[in-house]
């Protein structure tokens, strides 16, 4: 039985009574190769990690979904990569600049970049993710407003930038600024139970990853594939949108995108996926 059964007098009897849950719901043993590059979907966990092995959410999906991600001609998320390339090159704002004006060819300048976010932002005194870095460039270098959360351009650009790191292993440098204390805060949140249903992230993605919750095969809840193309929504889904959805499912009030809570969670959850390849745009059900 996977659940850690707290011993409360009845514990012994309970253990004897429990029937093992039926369907054995192991992640698949399969290799993900995208454009001839093999992705790391399984790797030894970093020190201090609750698991021995870190697993990509891809391993928990149905065959059809896995195939969609493996074939970049079929992957609907690739449309957003193309749109992101358009936005990258589009001149916008009073200064007459595009992203490319400063960063030239993203295939070179952005290669590997997305694998190391969130980063410490000394100016803001807090961590920033790709979305916030884009906003920073828009405000400071282009004379533009930040994007509204989940604006189509924000999702497309983030997808495009992350896609330049396809296959690169996720790795954070927690020694930057105060990033370590945000990791600590994120860890605390990860184990905090919320809502009327009283679940923590760990209730689903740690204690029960591999199990089914109704139709959903619970993965480790990794961030390495974001933004992700969700078949159910037929759209790209940002990481903070996913966080908010999972928190809402506990019947709790949801923190705002890019709030301190969700940035701390992003730092911690991203770290939990250390060593997995960036899979953006991943495909999920």
């Amino acid at each position: 039985m996977r659940q850690s059964l707290a011993i409360v007098g009845l514990g012994m009897i309970m253990a004897a009574l429990q029937v093992p849950s039926g369907a054995n719901a192991e992640p698949v043993d399969d290799a993900l190769v995208i454009d001839d590059v093999e992705m790391v979907t399984r790797t030894k966990a970093p020190e201090g990690h609750p698991f021995d092995e870190v697993l990509s959410g891809w391993l928990f999906r149905e065959g059809e979904t896995r195939e969609l991600e493996a074939d970049s001609f079929q992957n609907p998320g690739m449309l957003y990569v193309e749109q992101g390339a358009d936005v990258w090159n589009r001149v916008e704002g009073p200064d007459g600049k595009s992203c490319a004006s400063c960063h030239n060819d993203a295939a070179e300048s952005m290669k590997g970049v997305g694998a190391h976010y969130p980063k410490w932002d000394a100016d803001a005194g807090r961590p920033i993710n790709i979305e916030l870095q884009i906003d920073k460039c828009r405000v400071e270098n282009m004379g533009l407003e930040p994007y509204k959360f989940d604006a189509p351009e924000q999702k497309a650009l983030t997808t495009y930038i992350k896609n330049q790191s396809l296959g690169e292993p996720v790795e954070l440098d927690l020694s930057q600024g105060e990033l370590q204390s945000w990791w600590d805060k994120g860890k605390e949140l990860y184990y905090t139970r919320t809502g009327q249903l009283n679940f923590a992230c760990a209730s689903c993605h740690e204690s029960n990853s591999g199990q089914y919750i109704r139709a959903d095969h619970l993965s480790q809840g990794q961030a390495n594939g974001f933004p992700t193309y969700r078949l159910k929504q037929a759209d790209m889904v940002s990481l903070h949108n996913r966080f908010r959805g999972c928190i809402r499912d506990t019947r709790a009030e949801t923190p705002k995108a890019f709030s301190d809570e969700l940035m701390a969670l992003e730092v911690y959850v991203t770290w939990r996926g250390t060593g997995l390849s960036v899979e953006t745009p991943s495909v999920r059900q």
């Binding site: 905090t192 139970r193 919320t194 809502g195 009327q196 679940f199 809402r248 709790a252 009030e253």
Partner: peptide
């Protein structure tokens, strides 16, 4: 229950 329960609940 958990923290931050949805207001109407």
């Amino acid at each position: 229950v958990g923290k931050n329960v949805r207001e109407d609940l």
